[in-house]
Nucleic acid binder design. Structure first.
Lengths: 194, 194
DNA sequence: GAAATTTCTTAATCTACCTTATTGCTTTCT
DNA sequence: AGAAAGCAATAAGGTAGATTAAGAAATTTC
């Protein structure tokens, strides 16, 4: 098992002793899932925080008209969970599935609480992770209010250059909040005017 | 000075000893500001987290066309800050001003770090605060993607019944992401069809 | 308490984006 | 390899919401 990526991810914000590393690793469950397989269905309670080491996941909601809205992509080195459900331990509305065959580490809520008690530094780690996530989400709220579809598309391409190569364009459309038809149209206009 | 509200706010998530309470209180700076006064201008570094005890603040961005987009209202019992700027200690783009004459407690980033070291429980407190804020923000992203203007308006009224009485309708429009003219129109249609 | 400013409403015109449908292309399944 | 499914592009017609403008109501200011 290769723990280098996840340990590097953690060392971005806190420094662990060898012993603490060992303890942390002992709490992780490894999992591999195939493309299109689900990690979490809506109406389930989300009991795990998941770290991606290979492949790519997506988290999305389905609205009352049956349309998907992607809230998050999780390529390698990213964490994903239904935060609402994790916090409240109530059934959530997020679906998480795999865009590609993926390799994951999973940390249960119970083990995470254990971790907070044994190694309080992790309290800090997840606080910082959540803060960064909040900042990104606020910016996304702002972008949907102040940018046009094509501007959001450009921004997405700059922000996630590795993603545009592995995910279908209709899912980018779903993330930036437009129909695939419209994205295709404005993209064509955009490149015509270059 | 009345610390009951802020102490009650904190006791929602962590339990403090009398001594810890005293230490926390010693770090707070009290501030009163008048309606329309600014607490933070864009391009400034935000060095304080602010807790509102009276009145109401608002946090908003101004886009390239000069339009305001309100990201957050902060009535009594709420915290507000430019999280991006606080984390990075770089100039942010958020403006914070007072909708009404307001009373505040301010906690500097430096004192907050001190607090984390002296009373690690606060690490947990602010993690939980940030988690809740993240959940709310994700829901907002989803709402702007899947609900119509009138549905977002209805939801806002249900969610913040105390706010609708003290803030002008055009600011609600700015928060839910439509022009005041359009909100006025759909509201009229809505009540006509009841 | 009158003047000035801000806010709300209504209405006409305009546009960004949606819906539905068709076609060709690529990927996946058996 | 062939069938089936998924994906991208294009186009015509439709709708939610923006823009502009102007008058009425409410609030603030002096």
């Amino acid at each position: 098992m290769d723990y280098t990526l996840i340990l590097k991810n953690i060392s971005k914000h806190i420094q662990l002793t060898k012993l603490e590393e060992q303890f942390f690793i002992s709490l992780l469950k490894e999992k591999k899932i195939k493309r299109k397989q689900f990690l979490l269905h809506e109406n389930e309670v989300c009991t795990y925080s998941t770290f991606v080491t290979k492949g790519c996941l997506r988290g999305y909601n389905i609205d009352q008209n049956g349309f998907e809205h992607i809230l998050q992509f999780a390529p390698p080195d990213w964490w994903i969970a239904d935060m609402y459900s994790v916090i409240t331990q109530k059934p959530g509305s997020l679906n998480i599935d795999a865009i590609e065959d993926s390799a994951l580490f999973m940390l249960s809520r119970a083990d995470q609480e254990k971790l907070f008690i044994e190694v309080p530094k992790f309290e800090r780690f997840f606080r910082i992770l959540t803060e960064n996530s909040l900042v990104a989400n606020r910016q996304r709220v702002l972008d949907t209010m102040s940018l046009t579809a094509i501007q959001r598309f450009e921004k997405f391409c700059k922000q996630y250059p590795t993603l545009i190569e592995c995910i279908p364009q209709k899912q980018i459309a779903s993330y930036i909040g437009v129909t695939p038809e419209f994205l295709s149209k404005v993209k064509a206009e955009y490149f015509r005017n270059l």
